[in-house]
Design a protein around this nucleic acid. Sequence first.
DNA 1: TTGTAAGCGTTATCAC
DNA 2: GTGATAACGCTTACAA
Lengths: 344, 344
Amino acid sequence: MRFEAVTIKDIARALGLSTSTVSRALRDSYEISPETKKLVLDYAEKINYQPNPIALSLKERRTHSIGVIVSEIANSFFSQAIDGIESVAYRNGYNVIISQTRESAEREQVNLNYLTSRSIDGLIVSVSAETSDFSNFRELYERGMPIVFFDRIAPDINTYKITVDSYRGAYDATVHLIRNGYNRIAALASNVLLSITRDRLAGYRAALADHGLIEKDEYIRYCQHGGLILEETDIAVSEMLNAPERPDAILALSDKLTTGCLRVLKAHKIKVPHDIALIGFSNSDLTELIDPALSIIKQPAFDMGEMATNSLLQMIESKKPITDFNTTTLAPQLIIRDSSQPGR
Amino acid sequence: MRFEAVTIKDIARALGLSTSTVSRALRDSYEISPETKKLVLDYAEKINYQPNPIALSLKERRTHSIGVIVSEIANSFFSQAIDGIESVAYRNGYNVIISQTRESAEREQVNLNYLTSRSIDGLIVSVSAETSDFSNFRELYERGMPIVFFDRIAPDINTYKITVDSYRGAYDATVHLIRNGYNRIAALASNVLLSITRDRLAGYRAALADHGLIEKDEYIRYCQHGGLILEETDIAVSEMLNAPERPDAILALSDKLTTGCLRVLKAHKIKVPHDIALIGFSNSDLTELIDPALSIIKQPAFDMGEMATNSLLQMIESKKPITDFNTTTLAPQLIIRDSSQPGR
DNA sequence: TTGTAAGCGTTATCAC
DNA sequence: GTGATAACGCTTACAA
C-alpha cells in the first residue's frame, strides 16, 4: 500500500521546464516571469501538488516537529498540558510527537533515543518518577538539542523550565489544614527522586514548623511509582492509618495520589472529612463533583504546556545561542471545598 | 541553535573508507570483512553515530510515523485511546503525531492537510462533531493513505473501523432505567451528524418502543459542540426540565455530556437520583467517586486505540492492497451504581 | 528568465 | 571486499 505523490519533477516534465524553474515559480521568486509562474501554479493546483516535507527536512535540517515526553497521557494534568503544547505548536506550524515513560527511567531513555537523532527540532520533557540520572538529557542538550522541562524538571540543566510553585502550594494547603484545626497532618508523596516531591514536602514541612507542629516520619509515605499502581497507594495510606496516633488529615502530593487516597479511604470505610480530612494536588475537572467535594491544589497545566512550547520554539528559531534562560514559576491555585473542612 | 549530527560521511572520512562500505558495515552486510566491520562499528559507537531517520524516510518513502486526529486530547476517552495507540506504535517502532480538532470541521481539514502530504504513513481518526462531509478523507484514502476510523467513524469509507456497540450500550442503559421504574426518560445527545449520536439514539428509541413507552420530541436534546461548552449543555438540560412533564431520568450520550449534565442538575439543586436519575456514557476513572456514584456506559478506549493501531500498521505494512476490511465492534460495559437507581 | 548541478544522508546497483 | 555513482525530492549557487 503506497501513497502516490506528485513531485516537482512531474510538473517540470509535464510543462517542459526544469525542476529549478518550477521550484522557484512555486515559491513565487522574482526571477520567474509572470506567465511561467501562472502556468506552474495553475498546473500544480490542478494536479494537487503538495511539497514533500521530508525532502524539505533533509535539506533544511529541521523537521518542524517537537517531541514530548511525559509519564502518562491518560492523566488530567498531562493531557491538559499536551493540549496547551498542541495549541501553540499548531499555531506555529509544528507537529507534536508524543511518547510516554509510564514512570520508567528505562523507557524514558528508549524514547529519548528514539525521538532524537534529528527527527525532532526540540523536546519538551517532564521526567519520569524513576529518573535519577539526567546525564542523557544533559548530553543531548549539550550536543545542541533544544530542551524545555516542565513540572518535573532536571535541576542541573541550564535551560528553560516551567514549574509551579510547588513549595507554596503545599505550604498553603498545609496551613489551611492547620487553621482548620488539624494537627496530625500526614503527607502522601510520590517518588522522592522527583524535584516536585522534594519541593512539595519542603513546603509541607515548613508549614508544620512555622506553626509549631512536629514533623513525624510515620506521617510521610512515598509511592515509588507515583501512585500509578493503586496497591502502592493502598499500602502507603494503610501504614499512615496504622500509625500510633492516626493522622487527622492527609495532604496528597500528586494527581493520582489524591484520588487514589480517597479511594483507599473509602474502601476502609473512613469518612472524609469527618474521620480524616483530605486535600491534594489535582487537575481533574471532576473534583468538585466528587463525594466529598475535593479541596485541591490545581496547576495551570494548559498554560504550562503553552509556555513550555513558546520557550522551546524561541530556542529552536533563535539565530544566536540563548544563554539567558529563566525558570518560570507559576502560581498554583488553592481551591477549598468540603474534603478539608471539619463539619462538612 | 542547531543539533550537530554525526553522519556516515564523517565515519568514512575518519576511517579512510567509502560511505558505501561504512553503510554496509553498519548494516552488517555479508560483503564486508570482519575487520572492517569491527573498525566501523567501534568507531560509530565511540562517536555515538545515529542514522538520520529523515534521510531514510526520503529514501524509503515512509516515515514510521502515524497521525492521530481527535477532537480533544484532554478528555478521558481520547486520552485513554491515545494511550493505547502510543503503546502499539511504540512496540512497533512508530512515532505518534497528535492533532486536535476541537470539534471544528474546518480545523479538522487544516490538520488533515498538515499531517498528510506524506509526512505520515497512516492516519487514525475520530471525526469532529461538525463533520458532515467526508470527501476529504475519502479522497486522501483513495489516493492511497491508509486510514482507520475509531469511535466516530466515516460511514461510507471502506476501511477498518473500530467502534463500540453504541446501539446496545444505549439500549441496555435505557432498559435498565425502565426496569428501575423510570418511564419519562430523556436523552441528552451530542451533534446529530455523528455516527455514534445516531446509533445511540436508535438504541434509546428501540428500548422505549420495546417496552411500550412513547418517544417524545421534547425529551431529546442535542448539543452541537458535543458539550464542549457547558452553556450549551445547560440550555439543553434546562429545556428538558421545563418540558410539560418533567423527565424522571436522563440518558447522556457522551463523556462530556454526562458530567456536564450532572453539573447542571446540581446547579439547579436537583437531587440525583432522588429527583432525576442519570446514566451516561463516560470513560472517566473518577465516576465511582462522584456524588452520587455515577452509573455509566464505559467504552474500552485503550483497547480501541490498540486495535485501531494494529489495523493501521497492518494496512501500512501489507504488500498487497487490502480489500477485505472489517468493522470491529466492541462491547460497551454497563456499570450500574447509584445515580440510576431509586432510593439511593 | 531559465537551466545545470551540487548537496542534504542514506542505500542499492554496478564496477573493479 | 570495497568504491563510485545514482537516486529519493527539494533548494540554491552558478551558468547560460
